[in-house]
Design a protein around this nucleic acid. Structure first.
Lengths: 352, 352
DNA sequence: CGTTTCGATCGAATCGATTCGAGTACGCTA
DNA sequence: TAGCGTACTCGAATCGATTCGATCGAAACG
């Protein structure tokens, strides 16, 4: 049996140091780069490391000593498929990853699906970013807070001890509604994102609206209500084209149909557009559609949605920046980003 | 100044034990659940923990002692936006997450973009899953191997020390091509995924094809070649509708256009379909389109692609199962999953 | 030539838990 | 009453590094 064939447990820094004939502390200096080490010594240590196939200092041990794991958690409320099907969330994540840049930081993705039984006290993390979390902020946050790690929440309700990265959802929604109003629309309906964790689709009632827990959904609804207090609506189970389609049919296939529909996402707007097409309703001549988010959907071609474009990547960068600031011991300020009304081809003056 | 207002560093198990008047080992037993503890003692410890706002044992310290971090890394070659825009990858991830189930395991997502300078030796992980990685397997794998952790690769080339979770890409592709052949098609072109990390789009030449490093791309191409050695083609920069559209135009807008196109993904197929529509080419009467993956794209309606459906979620589950087996000390076997030819409405007999 | 300074190296403490073997007290059986 | 098992608790070693302060020799300075 060859010596190389024996099951080799991970060699330790001590083993490398011994083989190189130096102390553990010196060997450590070679790998961490802190402190002066003679070139000859460094080479000997590295040679020993190569010989032993040493893979570098154990990340866990290093983390313990340094008090940093190099991991930032992104906590979503949905299953990954749902969370990442939304282009906004993906763009956000890329913003985060991009802001990490050279920092040696990993992204721990934790889907906090209801009843999934994940334990936020177990995984290693230096900070947490809550993405699209609404319902049980309190319990999750409590666990994280006890861990004494910085918590950043995106588009969530204000919560003590949680740094907010927010978008002007309400104001943007109002601006969009205002735009429709100025175009002469008086009969307006809305297609909302999920109202709560149950994600029940159906007509919007006062009770359901009042009981809504989804923060983004509520904010956008509130902005609309400032202009159209009486607007009817339909809530969906998620930001998908098919949900938008179903909502569109429900709202449009009736005599007293609205002249404009405010969809809470561009994907929903796309579904509404298709529903209108199938029902033979001309867009934007007979029906104006306002989207949300500012995803560029080439599937909508030849249309381009009038939409409220939000800086999703910046949102991610802001979140990452806040995390780093907090880890550096600073007290970062909450961030409020702004959406922009981008006028496309799906809105026009109201039909008489 | 209130005592609560003082900056409170994370309390340790020792602090809790001291306050409860027990030894550290006993306190540890309370939290880890191993070993018998008197009810009265347990309550005292928990009370002390609550009083100090102790958030449970430090994950890093626990990891060091236990030799497990509870983190599985998923390493992708692209930026996250690109990697997760592919529905197959998302489904895969969900399969992984689902297989984790109750195991207290987190998913560390590492985008290994070229030149991104991520260091695979730094982040904590118990095992690694390589997803859609092709080019520098060797260097990445070397780093991971030195860490003595199990490595699982999905749809990659065989590599020593790497457990393969594979799909019968080549055979499936051949089957699809065979199907087209039986329908009478003789002039066939293909739209491929990215050939290599440069992701250059353009006509498929012998040189480019020979130099291709993308494993999935190559396998699917090879299967096609077994039936249509002379097929022309166009390589894209990624699995997007727009790329498929561009390829479609390039291949179809010419007198000697093919009677069938094999797209290496359903999204590419969708682009080709749109291109055909815009060029006034009837599908499937004048042009048959074969997709790949088996994503159900309702945007294709009223069409449903003839496609090679692959079990993406199962792929994720298989990868997770392999990881757990390896961590349990077993020697898991490589897995080969099978695609299924699903006949839709985009293929028919070749035009005369 | 004595003293200071700096570079290189090392020993030992430390990070915060887990775990094993040992010790104690108590109740039960013979 | 001696012997023994059980239930509970504790001390100490350990996981694999980092880092502070001390040491030592050699070069630089006055």
């Amino acid at each position: 049996m060859e010596p190389e064939a024996t099951a080799s447990p991970r060699p330790t820094l001590a083993a490398v140091a011994a083989r190189a004939g130096v102390s553990v502390s010196t060997a450590s200096l070679v790998f961490s780069g802190a402190g002066p080490v003679a070139v000859a010594t460094r080479d000997r240590v590295l040679a020993a490391a190569t010989a032993l196939e040493y893979g570098g200092p154990d990340p866990t041990a290093r983390s313990l000593r340094r008090g940093r794991s190099g991991v930032i958690a992104v906590i979503t409320e949905d299953r990954l498929t749902d969370a990442f099907r939304d282009p906004m969330n993906l763009a956000f994540l890329d913003g985060v990853a991009q802001a990490f840049g050279d920092e040696r930081t990993g992204l721990l993705v934790i889907p906090l699906a209801a009843e999934s039984g994940v334990d936020l006290s177990a995984p290693p993390m230096d900070a947490a970013i809550l993405l699209g979390c609404s319902l049980d902020l309190s319990s999750s946050v409590e666990v994280l807070r006890r861990r004494r790690i910085p918590i950043v929440a995106v588009e969530a309700e204000p919560f003590e001890g949680v740094l907010l990265i927010d978008i002007d959802n309400r104001a943007a929604s109002r601006r969009g509604a205002q735009y429709l109003f100025e175009l002469g629309h008086r009969r307006v309906a809305t297609v909302t994102l999920a109202l709560d964790a149950t994600r029940t689709a159906g007509p919007l009632t006062l009770e359901r609206e009042a009981a809504a827990t989804g923060n983004t959904t509520r904010q956008r609804l509130a902005g609309l209500r400032e202009v159209y207090p009486e607007a009817t609506g339909w809530s969906t189970s998620g930001s998908y084209r098919a949900d938008g389609y179903a909502a569109g049919v429900a709202l449009l296939d009736r005599p007293d149909r609205p002249t404009a529909i405010v969809a809470q996402s561009d994907l929903l707007a796309l579904g509404v557009l298709r529903a209108a097409e199938d029902l033979g309703i001309g867009v934007p001549r007979e029906l104006s559609i306002l989207g949300f988010d500012g995803v560029r959907l080439d599937e909508a071609a030849p249309h381009e949605f009038t939409t409220l474009a939000q800086p999703a990547v910046e949102k991610g960068e802001a979140a990452a920046a806040a995390v780093f600031a907090a880890l550096a011991g600073e007290r970062p300020e909450p961030v409020l980003l702004h959406s922009e009304l981008r006028v496309g081809t799906t809105t026009s003056v109201a039909p008489r």
